[in-house]
């Protein structure tokens, strides 16, 4: 059922990209909208769908294994709904495998290089070992400040001239090139932060929501367990 006035949040092929609690980002966005009196609808698009609809306001791509990642690119390239949505101003978050899928190219563990969707200027190659652990960064973008999460990836990514890093690594690996983490370009954001990212970082969630809604959002009363969690995790990251 479609609700015309609701903000539509697409959970993109969670059967392929969704191994690390990535569904949580959709839950967080929908709930932060509802708490403010907006209507929100989560649209789950499985890889069995014909194509990805271009009519959603926010698109979320999570992490996945190599084979699943390639299958996700194949699905998303079909119909090109995501590109049309981005050109029309939709907000996109790609996490981990999602970052690599949104970028220009990625090389998988077997040495094969694949085209990404090219929706943001970032490319990925395998690193010498898996980056696993707490990751904390500081972002100058949109006053986001401290971003925390958990990373688990082999890829090392390089941000090209058409995008900016999302943050600078304080602790952890991140993109693994210089001290950058993630990338942002227009309303396309990508990151290696799991946790999920928007559960750990409400400022990032609200920035994306204000883009989607098209107006500044009212402040939500911060809940103490989230503030404490951010402090605890930043300390755990060292």
């Amino acid at each position: 059922m479609t609700d015309d006035s609701a903000i539509r949040i697409a959970l993109v092929v969670p059967d392929l990209l969704g191994t690390y609690g990535d569904r949580g980002n959709a839950l967080v966005l929908a709930q932060r909208l509802r708490w403010r009196g907006y209507r929100a609808e989560i649209v789950t698009v499985l890889s069995s769908a014909e194509t990805l609809p271009d009519s959603c306001d926010i698109y979320l791509l999570g992490g996945g294994e190599d084979v699943a990642q390639q299958a996700a690119v194949n699905f998303l390239a079909r119909g090109d709904g995501l590109r049309r949505a981005v050109n029309a101003g939709a907000v996109v978050l790609g996490v981990c495998g999602g970052l690599q899928v949104l970028g220009t190219s990625f090389t998988t563990g077997d040495g094969a290089t694949h085209h990404g969707l090219g929706l943001i200027d970032i490319s990925t190659e395998p690193g010498p070992n898996r980056a696993i652990g707490e990751l904390s960064t500081r972002s100058e973008e949109h006053g986001l400040g401290l971003l925390t999460g958990f990373e688990n990836h082999l890829g090392r990514s390089t941000v090209g001239p058409a995008a900016r890093p999302l943050g600078r690594v304080l602790h952890g690996i991140g993109n693994g090139s210089e001290d950058t983490e993630g990338a942002v370009s227009g309303r396309v954001v990508c990151t290696y932060l799991h946790g999920p990212a928007l559960a750990r970082n409400p400022a990032l969630a609200d920035t994306m929501l204000s883009w989607a809604v098209g107006e500044p959002l009212s402040e939500l009363a911060p809940f103490p367990e989230l503030t404490e969690l951010r402090t605890e995790r930043a300390r755990a990251a060292g």
Partner: peptide
């Protein structure tokens, strides 16, 4: 496992 992202699954 150190990562508890799965709580959201």
């Amino acid at each position: 496992g150190h990562d508890v992202s799965w709580l959201w699954d």
